[in-house]
Amino acid sequence: MTTTKTKRYVREDGRLLDTLREQTSVLNTITRSTSSCEWHSDETKVVCSIQGPRELQFSSLSQSKEDGERLVVESYCKLLPSKNDDEDDGSSFDDPLKEEKEKERTTEQFVKSCAKAAIELEKNASFGLIVSVQELKNDGSFLSCALNAVGLALILSGVETKGWMCSSTACLMEMSSGKGEGETPTFALALDPTREEEMKAKATMTCAFLINEETEDKTILLGTKMRGKMTETEVFECVALCRDAATSVCTYFDRVLTLREREFEERYRITDEKVEKWKKMMESIAEETKTKAV
């Protein structure tokens, strides 16, 4: 078995192996949360909600969990009911409900561990923060989409972090079966796989990174989650590919936040036109009040 680096291979959706799908986001879609982000990676859609940091007064964070030295972080995930796919996804569960609960639990634990590694826990001691993730649609690379939604929502919440948390997913695709005489199977790493590509892949890995250009280690690996088997070389190549993709996601974060800041500046900027409008409005109110008084 060999691993190829064929980057010019065109996938079924028209992308190259090292190309991300279109990444978009909608900010603060949930009004009752501190911040929220709906993240779309083409047809994969997920929404994240952040509540806190605040005092531990809600039932999900009991007083027994209070930590006088660190921020308490809890994570909750709700997945859509899985469909009965013909492909084998490597699951060892016979009960679909039990399998769904286990997927939710493992997703919650991974999101929680990555969020705790990214947040300055000591600067919000005795407070709690809840990270909630809701799957809207899964067309592959769901976990990386969820982590990107969490990362952007954390920035919007104002909680102090060590950097920006970004994530990406890659899979090991079979390029040739090697069934011919003297041939060996060849595989290639594909970035941001679709659901169909994930089901056919030999292995899939999701990597979470902490990116901060002002630190000595600009990119830190927070955690990885893998399904299937890879060689040591393939793992390192996969992490490098995901790191480059996460850097692109970080650039997208910067662009979204810059546009948001410009919109706020434009909305609340005091101009001569606005001053004249306010002046006329106040004169109108004063004249109306004087008329009623007479």
Results as ranks from 00 to 15, higher is better:
M175I: 12
S167D: 00
A286R: 13
L129G: 06
S132W: 01
E120A: 09
S82V: 12
S141N: 04
Y9G: 00
A188M: 06
A293S: 09
D139G: 05
K65Y: 08
V133Y: 01
E174L: 12
L121S: 00
L259E: 14
C145K: 01
Q51R: 07
M230R: 03
T224M: 13
A208N: 01
N28F: 06
R8P: 00
P193E: 02
S132D: 08
R195P: 00
W278Q: 08
L143C: 01
K101G: 07
G140V: 00
T289S: 11
P185Y: 05
T2I: 11
T271L: 06
L71S: 06
Y252T: 14
I119H: 00
V275I: 15
V159R: 03
S168M: 03
Q134E: 13
M205A: 07
K279N: 08
E22I: 10
C238E: 02
I155W: 05
V73L: 07
E266K: 14
E22G: 01
V239D: 02
R21A: 02
C166P: 02
C37E: 05
L241T: 10
G158R: 04
T19R: 09
G223Q: 01
M1L: 11
D13K: 03
L17C: 14
A170C: 15
E108Q: 14
E69D: 13
D18G: 05
R195G: 06
G180W: 09
V159K: 05
E104S: 04
M175H: 07
T289L: 14
I30W: 01
M199L: 15
N84F: 13
F236G: 03
T194G: 04
C77L: 09
E135G: 05
L80Q: 13
A153D: 10
A188F: 03
L71P: 05
E43C: 08
L222Q: 03
F93W: 13
L16Q: 11
Y252M: 11
A246H: 00
D94S: 14
V133L: 07
E214H: 10
G158S: 07
K101L: 14
T215I: 04
T44L: 03
A170S: 15
E183D: 15
E216H: 06
V10P: 02
T215G: 00
T247V: 10
R21L: 03
A203C: 06
S59D: 14
S92N: 10
G182L: 10
D85A: 11
V72Q: 04
C77Q: 04
S157Y: 08
